[in-house]
Amino acid sequence: MHPVLTLVIQRLALGLLLLLAASVLIFIGTEILPGDVAQAILGQGATEQALHNMRAEMGLDRPAVTRYFEWLFSALQGDLGSALSNGRDIAESIGTRMKNTLFLASVAAAISVPLSIFLGLLAVRYRDRWPDRLISAITLTSISLPEFLLGYIIMYVFSVQLGWFPSVSNINSGMSFGEKLIAVALPALVLTLVVLAHMMRMTRAAILNVMQSAYIETAELKGLRRFTIIARHAMPNSIAPIVNVVMLNLAYLVVGVVVIEVVFVYPGMGQYLVDHVSKRDVPVVQACGLIFATIYIGLNLLADLISILSNPRLRHPK
């Protein structure tokens, strides 16, 4: 078998194992800690008998291991159970919200990825001069703020003071694509700023690292233009680290979405999760936690795979 194929299969198996372990961790996090769902629903004043009945009704009196496997297997079949607070089917509620969240995240990614790579190149081209310093200063400020505050600042400026965009991102299936884009403009902008800083700094570092190589000096001595050297010689050799950074930040986006959705009252997964955490609706929290963890682990795995595949030394072994 081709050595790369073996590596890829190993990584995939490792990823699946990690996912399984993560699901155990999420389950333990909600089930075995001192707090209990029945207690959470009935409150501190509940009698022992009421608690007992509630636990029997919800099947909480059975051993945790049995309940874990039941939960896992039904989740694998797409059955996430029903919410405690309103009895609705979780998978159904998540369906449309998931689409909304992915829409928001992909708009943010479509803007931030090309922009951050371009800015990274620009920062290397004008290294230690004012464009580089300006970009660094702006990105440093934007990572010193929590996402939700950045969200409110942008809302205050663009929606309240300037009145360009709505302050609440309401979205429904009846809207056209353009209307949807306008609705998500502000949250997408905030998410872009949040990941841009990190992505751009890492791109800059990755290219600067390659710029130390001997072949760059050769290209300089050939008399090539600075931007050509960066774009044609340095860029292709820093693809692997850059792709890695992009993937890690897309994974970060998944988490950033949670908070930003609350700020802009956007009907997505994140808001759904936060709402149900305060309602102590454990089945919903478990389901959402599992989905977020899956996306996060999946993107990290993808980053690994791409960096393996983009390495010519691994693709063409001697």
Partner: peptide, 8 residues
């Protein structure tokens, strides 16, 4: 670390 801190 494989589970996002906020989600956990």
């Amino acid at each position: 670390m494989s589970i996002p801190t906020l989600i956990f």
